[in-house]
């Protein structure tokens, strides 16, 4: 089914949803949100697009296929546990660094954020993987 309304909506919704998913991912540490929800949103953005334009056309837009995205997410999640080993802690201990300490732009970065990015990508990847397989049928 080709629907112009859906297509226009999907075209404009996709970037918005992607940005929203990133916001949700980033703010997840202090406020409601996080990698899992963000991942679902990212997946939803592309599923909406696929419903409007078809799976084949959607997959052309990817640098990473859903399969690789899932794998990449898992890899990032695992790798995020490694810095702790160098700090002498056990695997997956959260390690933090603070940038621009005591200024307005104070920024705390830590391996849990990297881990969350991994979750985000893995969840989005697997969602698309499953949905696209079924929708292509």
């Amino acid at each position: 089914m080709e629907s112009v309304i859906l297509q226009i909506a999907a075209r404009h919704m996709r970037p918005l949803l992607i940005i929203l998913s990133l916001v949700v991912l980033y703010r997840g540490h202090n406020e409601p949100g996080g990698g899992f929800i963000g991942g679902l949103m990212l997946g939803a953005a592309y599923i909406l697009y696929a419903m409007a334009f078809g799976v084949a056309k959607t997959q052309n837009r990817f640098v990473f296929s859903p399969l690789n995205l899932t794998a990449l997410g898992l890899l990032i999640a695992v790798v995020s546990g490694i810095p702790a080993l160098f700090a002498g802690d056990t695997f997956m201990t959260g390690e933090w660094i603070t940038l621009f300490a005591d200024t307005v732009a104070e920024l705390k970065l830590g391996t849990p954020l990297i881990f969350d990015v991994g979750v985000y990508l893995a969840v989005a990847g697997m969602l698309m993987l499953v949905m696209f397989s079924i929708m292509e049928e």
Partner: peptide, 9 residues
């Protein structure tokens, strides 16, 4: 501050 998320990650 998000306890749910801190537990998860």
């Amino acid at each position: 501050r998000n306890i749910v998320n801190v537990i998860l990650v």
